[in-house]
């Protein structure tokens, strides 16, 4: 017993001495680790995909490979439910909110980048501090704000898509202003000065000279804002009562919440369809997203 105990480390050490062996072991361990983590990460998504194509549609019938693949669940969610209506509501709210927010962000960032004025640093800091308090915390006040405003201007009131858009605009001035300001800062001032020599106004310099240069960035910011809004569930839940004004997330949640057992397959189909746009865009914009996240970390 003691012999083998002594001998084993010896053999192990010998094996470990070889760089090739060491690399092989490390790689094996890494691939095992990859398999486990990928399973944890992707299995829930694969199960959902499978449920979407599975006939029957009950929760208990979930298998990794559908027994008899069918499009029935997709037909039910698209034809017998209000999927398209919810999608249209979501797309309307998110796209208007994203375009307006993007525009406000651009104007604000341009001013921070190109002008020096009293209180500039304080305003920049204030943006960061206001960000800390999620709008969720003030949900009661937001609710009564919409209720009060809606009494006078009905299309931005409670239970109105306009009211939702209005609330999302409150978050337009966000960390994105900092990001956007950074991009404006990186555009040489000489471009502005060339415009000034030609007698262009600030608006013309902004719109004709600088905007084309930052257009790709602002597009990415708008797309990310769009999906941030698209994926929001809580504000619609608080502010919208009528089923015909549900956003997609709210509609799918209300659809599944009452009857998990029987609606599972249909919900899975809806979830797959609801996730496709964002997953596609995120994979295309991978570089930007990872870049944006790590820029935050590396710069601090």
């Amino acid at each position: 017993m003691s012999d083998s105990h002594v001998a084993q480390p010896g053999a192990w050490q010998q094996f470990w001495q070889s760089k090739r062996n060491r690399r092989r072991v490390t790689l094996t361990v890494k691939f095992l680790f990859a398999a486990v983590t990928l399973a944890i990460t992707l299995l829930p998504i694969l199960f959902t995909l499978s449920s979407a194509f599975n006939g029957g549609g009950s929760l208990s019938a979930t298998r990794l490979l559908p027994a008899k693949p069918t499009m029935e669940n997709f037909r039910v969610i698209l034809v017998e439910n209000d999927f398209w209506l919810w999608l249209r509501n979501s797309a309307t709210v998110s796209s208007i909110a994203a375009v307006l927010s993007g525009f406000l962000t651009m104007l604000t960032a341009y001013s921070f980048s190109r002008f020096r004025f009293h209180g500039r640093e304080h305003l920049l800091l204030m943006i960061l501090i206001v960000q800390v308090f999620p709008s969720l915390l003030a949900m009661i006040a937001l609710f009564s704000l919409l209720q009060q405003i809606g009494q006078y201007v009905s299309f931005v009131g409670l239970n109105q898509l306009g009211g939702l858009i209005f609330l999302y605009l409150g978050g337009a001035i966000s960390i994105n202003v900092w990001l956007m300001k950074g991009f404006f800062d990186s555009i040489p001032r000489e471009i502005d000065e060339a415009g000034m020599v030609e007698g262009a106004t600030h608006w013309q310099i902004f719109w004709k000279l600088l905007f084309p240069l930052v257009r790709p960035i602002i597009l990415v910011i708008m797309i990310l804002t769009f999906f941030g809004t698209f994926g929001d569930w809580l504000l619609p839940r608080l502010m919208i009562q009528d089923a015909d004004k549900y956003t997609l997330m709210l509609g799918l949640q209300q659809f599944i919440v009452n009857d998990y057992g029987n609606n599972w397959g249909t919900f899975a189909a809806g979830a797959v369809l609801g996730a496709i746009p964002q997953v596609t865009v995120f994979i295309i914009l991978q570089e930007y997203i990872v870049g944006g996240l790590t820029a935050g970390s590396v710069k601090g």
Binding site: P44, I45, M249, L252, I256, A268, A275, Q278, F282
Partner: peptide, 14 residues
């Protein structure tokens, strides 16, 4: 990236 890109509400419900 994929789980990161699926809207969180849907993931939780799943």
């Amino acid at each position: 990236i994929i789980p990161f890109a699926v809207p969180g509400v849907l993931s939780i419900l799943i």
